[in-house]
C-alpha cells in the first residue's frame, strides 16, 4: 500500500462508479503528475458542484439557481411539458433541438421489482405544476423499457383524469438501421405508429 495522502486518494477514487482498484491507482498517479493548477481546478469543480448545484423548484432538474435555465427562459412554450426520468434525458432531448416546451424530471422510474413506487418520484410536484400552470399537453418521454413503460402507463392514467392532453414519444427504428435486423417489438411499434407522408 502507498503512504498517507496517495493511499487516501486511491481509496476515494476507488469509490467512484465503474472505477476498480487498478483504475483508481492509475488515476491517482496521473493526478500526482499534473500541474497544481489543474489539480486545484478539479478539486474546485467537485466542491462547486456540491455547494452550488440544487434542484430546480419548478421542474426538479439540476440547477445552479432556484430555477433551471429552461424554466427561466421566457422563449420556451409553457403550455407543453415533457416528462423525463433523469436530468441526463433533458440534455439528450435538448440536443435534438426539436422541443421548445419545458421539462419535468421525475428522478427515476416506477420499478416494482426494486420497490420503487410512484411516491418515490417527483409526481406530486408535477401535479402541483399542472394545477398552477396553464399546461395544454404533457409528453411522456420515459425510457421505452419495463420501468419507463410502467411509469408512462401510471402517469397517463393519472393525468387524463385532469383533462390535459397526454402523449407518449414515438418508438421505432433507429435512423441508419436495417429493417431485416429489427426485432419484432420495435418493428411492430414502428408500424403501429406510422404516419402519412
Amino acid at each position: 500500500m502507498y503512504e498517507g495522502p496517495v493511499q487516501d486518494l486511491v481509496e476515494e477514487l476507488g469509490r467512484l462508479p465503474g472505477v476498480g482498484p487498478k483504475s483508481a491507482q492509475r488515476l491517482a498517479f496521473h493526478l500526482l503528475t499534473v500541474d497544481s493548477a489543474d489539480a486545484e481546478r478539479l478539486a474546485a469543480s467537485i466542491l462547486a458542484v456540491k455547494e452550488r448545484v440544487r434542484f430546480c423548484v419548478r421542474c426538479c432538474n439540476v440547477s445552479e439557481f432556484d430555477e433551471c435555465r429552461v424554466c427561466r427562459d421566457p422563449r420556451r412554450d409553457p403550455r407543453v411539458l415533457c416528462v423525463v426520468e433523469e436530468p441526463r434525458d433533458v440534455v439528450a432531448l435538448e440536443r435534438t433541438g426539436e422541443f421548445r416546451g419545458r421539462y419535468h424530471v421525475l428522478g427515476g422510474a416506477i420499478s416494482p421489482i426494486d420497490g420503487v413506487g410512484p411516491d418515490d418520484l417527483n409526481i406530486k410536484p408535477l401535479l402541483a405544476r399542472l394545477a398552477d400552470e396553464d399546461v395544454a399537453e404533457v409528453v411522456l418521454a420515459t425510457n421505452p423499457n419495463v420501468e419507463g413503460e410502467a411509469t408512462a402507463s401510471y402517469l397517463g392514467r393519472l393525468l387524463k383524469t385532469l383533462g390535459v392532453r397526454v402523449s407518449r414519444i414515438a418508438s421505432g427504428l433507429p435512423v441508419g438501421g436495417d429493417l431485416e435486423y429489427a426485432d419484432e417489438v420495435t418493428l411492430g411499434r414502428a408500424f403501429a405508429g406510422r404516419r402519412e407522408v
Binding site: 416506477i110 416494482p112 419495463v146 413503460e149 410502467a150 408512462a152 402507463s153 426485432d183 417489438v185
Partner: peptide, 24 residues
Amino acid sequence: ELITSFTAVREDFALSACAAVMVE
C-alpha cells in the same frame, strides 16, 4: 429470437406490477 414479447403486460402499470411479483 423472440417467442412471445408480452408487450401488453409491460405497457400497463397494473399488469406490469403483477408480472414483476410473478418473476420475483
